[in-house]
Design a protein around this nucleic acid. Structure first.
Lengths: 249, 249
DNA sequence: CATTGTTAGGGTCATGATGACTGTAACTCA
DNA sequence: TGAGTTACAGTCATCATGACCCTAACAATG
C-alpha cells in the first residue's frame, strides 16, 4: 500500500489538486424537535480508504474557478444549489494520502432543510449527523471539525444563520438555528432584543398561523446576498458592523 | 474521493499550483516616527507582467507542505524567518493569468522590524509601503488588500500584534503597532487598561532606560507560540526539504 | 364557556466593557 | 529650576449583555 515507487513518483509529479466541500444542513430531531447539524458524505469506491465515508469532492476542472468547482461538486452530490458557499481552507500536508501527493481546497456550504430533504441519497451518498461523522477517510475528520468551528465562529457576527432558513422565518426558528450551531440554550427575550437592533432583519406584517400557541410574527432577512447566489472570493467585507472575518487558528 | 467525477472530461490540462506570501513588517516613518506597514515585492523577470512588481512566490515543491513552502518562499525573499505565518486564501479565478491556468495558495507573514532591516534588498527585491503597493502583477493588488484586511481583523482579538515586536516591549510600542495597523489613534489610558485584563501579557520588573521621558515598564507576551515558530494550520505538519527552483509568481 | 399550558413579545435590573476625560508621578532637557 | 513630555492611575457616562419577570394570545382540555 505504500511502495517506494510511489515515493519516488512524488518527487517528480506535481501535487494533485482537488476540491472538496463540507455541506451543512439542519434537520429537526424526531423526538425533541430540536435542530441538529447534518452533512452528506460519499462512500469511497476505490483505494485508498475504500469503503470509508468521505467528503464529496473531485479534481479541479481546467475551465472552472474554485468557487464554481465547489458549486458543481455540491450539485453533483446533493442535486441542489447551496444558499451559502465559502472557501474554508487549503489542506496540503504531505501525509494526507498514502498513494499520491494531494492538495485539497475545501469549501463549506449551507443548504436549507427543505432542500436537504429533497437531496438524493443512494448507496454511496448518505447524510450523517455532524457529531457522528467520525472515522472518515483521509484527514476529513479534522476538516469537518474545522468547518464546524468556522460555522460557529461565523454565525455570531455574520449573516450565516439566515442561509439555513427560507425567506420568511420566525424568531424562534432563527433562535433554533443559533442554538443548534452554538450548542447552547439562548434566552428568547435577549435573543429578540439583539435581533431588533440588527438592521438587516426586518419584520413583515404576517404571522405564522397553524401553531398551537400565539402566532409568531414572520421576519425577513434584508442584508447583503439575501436571495442571491453566494459571492465568490474575498472581497472586502466592508462594513465595520462587527469584528472581522475570521481565519484558521 | 472522486466517486461522482467524470474523469475523462476534465483531464484537459491540470491547473498549475503556486504558493505566494504577503510579508508584513513595520517601520517607523523618518519624520513622524509613527509606524507604517511595509512589505517586500519582487520584480517579474519574465512574461507575463514582465517588469512589474509582484508578491514573492513560486511553485509548490513535491515534498514540502503548503506551510513549509511558504516559509521557504519567505526565507528566499527576505533571508529571514517570520514570527508569524498563516494561510490567507486560495485564489483560483480563471482570468488570473493570461498565459496559464494558475491556482495560488497565498500565505501571510509577520516579521520583526529589526529583522526587516537585515532583509536583503536587490535589484529585483524591494520593500514598499503597503499603501504604495499598487499596480502589481496579476491580481496581487486584491491579494494585498485582502491580507491587510485580515491583518486588521486579526489584531483586534488575536495574538498577532506581538509578533511585530521583540520579546520585551513597552505598552507604547505595542500601541504603536495597533495604531499603525488599525490606522487610527488609540487612547493610551484605555489601551493600558485593556491590556492589563488580557492575561497573556505580563509585566516584567524592568524598565526601558534611555528615553527622554519617564522610563516605561517592559512587558512580555506569555501566550501561545510566544517565541516558538508558528504552527501549521488545522492539521499536523510534515517535515520539509530544502531545494526548489524559483519561479514566479 | 372557562381553565390551563405554552409560546410571543414587552419590560426591568445588575454587571461589565468601553470611550472620553482628569490628575499625578517620573524623567530629560534647556 | 522650570518646562515639556510621557507613564500610569482613576473617574464618569454610556452601552451591550445576561438573568429575570410580566402580560398577551393562541390551542387544547375540561
Amino acid at each position: 500500500m505504500y511502495s517506494s515507487a510511489n515515493v519516488s513518483e512524488r518527487q517528480v509529479q506535481p501535487p494533485s489538486l482537488a476540491i472538496s466541500t463540507v455541506i451543512f444542513a439542519l434537520r429537526p430531531d424526531a423526538g425533541s424537535g430540536r435542530l441538529e447539524i447534518w452533512l452528506p458524505l460519499v462512500r469511497r469506491v476505490r483505494q485508498p480508504h475504500l469503503g470509508k465515508w468521505a467528503l464529496p469532492g473531485g479534481p479541479l476542472g481546467g475551465r472552472e474557478s474554485l468557487h464554481d468547482a465547489a458549486a458543481r461538486n455540491l450539485r453533483e452530490t446533493t442535486n441542489l444549489d447551496p444558499t451559502y458557499l465559502e472557501q474554508l481552507y487549503a489542506f496540503g500536508g504531505l501525509d494526507r494520502s498514502a498513494t499520491q501527493r494531494l492538495v485539497s481546497i475545501v469549501y463549506w456550504a449551507l443548504v436549507r432543510p427543505d432542500q436537504a430533504d429533497l437531496a438524493q441519497e443512494s448507496e454511496n451518498v448518505r447524510w450523517f449527523r455532524a457529531a457522528e461523522a467520525v472515522g472518515l477517510a483521509f484527514d476529513h475528520d479534522e476538516i469537518v471539525a474545522y468547518a464546524l468551528e468556522r460555522l460557529r465562529g461565523k454565525i455570531e457576527y455574520g449573516s450565516v444563520a439566515y442561509h439555513f432558513l427560507g425567506e420568511r422565518f420566525t424568531l424562534a426558528q432563527l433562535r433554533g438555528v443559533y442554538e443548534a450551531v452554538l450548542g447552547r440554550h439562548l434566552d428568547p427575550a435577549n435573543f429578540r432584543r439583539q435581533l431588533r437592533s440588527a438592521k438587516d432583519i426586518s419584520a413583515t406584517d404576517e404571522v405564522l398561523q397553524g401553531g398551537r400557541n400565539r402566532p409568531p410574527r414572520l421576519y425577513r432577512y434584508t442584508g447583503p446576498d439575501a436571495g442571491t447566489p453566494p459571492r465568490e472570493a474575498p472581497q472586502a467585507s466592508g462594513s465595520a458592523e462587527w469584528p472581522a472575518p475570521d481565519a484558521p487558528p
